[in-house]
Structure formats: structure tokens, C-alpha cells
Design a binder for these strands. Sequence first.
DNA 1: CAGAGGATCGGCT
DNA 2: GCCGATCCTCTGG
Length: 185
Amino acid sequence: MPLARALIGKILVRELPTGELLTGRIVETEAYTLGDPSSHAFRGPTQRNASMFKRHLHAYVYFIYGSAFCLNISSEAEGTGAAVLIRAVEPLTGIETMRTLRGPTIKDRDLARGPGRLCAAFAITKSQDTLDLETDQTLWLATETTKKFAIGTSPRIGLSQEQSRPHRFYLKSSPHLSGPRTLSP
DNA sequence: CAGAGGATCGGCT
DNA sequence: GCCGATCCTCTGG
């Protein structure tokens, strides 16, 4: 859970096969911790969720509702199944390429607002599953040294249970957040 | 092997 | 705000 908060404000960097860099500031995350019934890792390791059991800072990418990929970052030690879902980023560079990936008429604020849209905008699919973000050359995290951010918390989005836990973190006053407005004060 | 459900999105009301 | 699409993954028989 500390990782979910720590990731707010970090920069997600993606290098495409063309060599172009896409970057965005992480503005919204959700923690899926050990023993959480709504976590994909709750029932133990399977072929799909294996990446959640890797050492921290490995990518876990899964396909959902027949239409979207979601990017998570493993958050605990090797053998512990836990991860942070990246729900939204603020696009910084490569915006025109993101628009070609998402649609020519999409507004900047909607390019990567929502976990599925984020993956589409950054060309992230199942082939990025299991990547080590500490060493990989196509997907990694960067830090803006001087910045500080006001961070809010709320219940997570889209769950049928566990709605009481405030495991969602977001950059306050960001216009790039996903979910109902009532959750993004 | 069949069935059910999901950490979503986009379109329509 | 609500609803349906769409398909991967897991579970049970």
C-alpha cells in the first residue's frame, strides 16, 4: 500500500519500437494487498496472476471485459501476491502518438483517464506482462525530484465488494482522474 | 468442456 | 446514469 501512494506523481515512461518516448504523470492508483478478497491474487498464484507474485516493480497486465488491458505494478517481496493498479496518468509527451493509438478526436484529458484507456494510449498489452520496470528498456518509471503533490484517498472503483477500504489514491485537483466525480473532489 | 463473471469502455437517455 | 459488448480466465463436473 505504501507503493500506491508513492507512485502518485511519478512519471510512466514507454519507449515504442520506433524509439519514440511516451510519458505521463501518474495521477491515480489503487492498492490490491495481501489478503484482499477483491485482489486477483487472493486465491493464490495462477498462470494469469503470476506477475503479482514477483518482486516489487514488475508489470502485471491483464485483459478485462473483453475490451481493455490494465497495468499493475507488483508491490511486495518475491512470493507475495500484491500489486498497484495504475488507473490514470496525465499525458506529458508523445501526445499526438497517443491520439493515433486512441482516436483522432480524443481530448488530452481523456487520452489516459481510466486503466484501459491508459494502456491503449501507451501501447501496453499482455506482451508487457512480467517486465521488470527497474531494468527494462521499454517501460519504466522516472521521478521529478523537486515536485510535491497533495494526495487524496477514496474507496476503489468498480468493485462489487470491499467498498469501504480507502485504497484508491489520487493527485488532488488533477483534471485527469477517472471514475465518478463524486469520488474525485 | 461448459458456464459464469469481471480492478472497463463507449454510446445512448 | 444506465446498459450491453466482448473475451479471457478460472472453476467445477
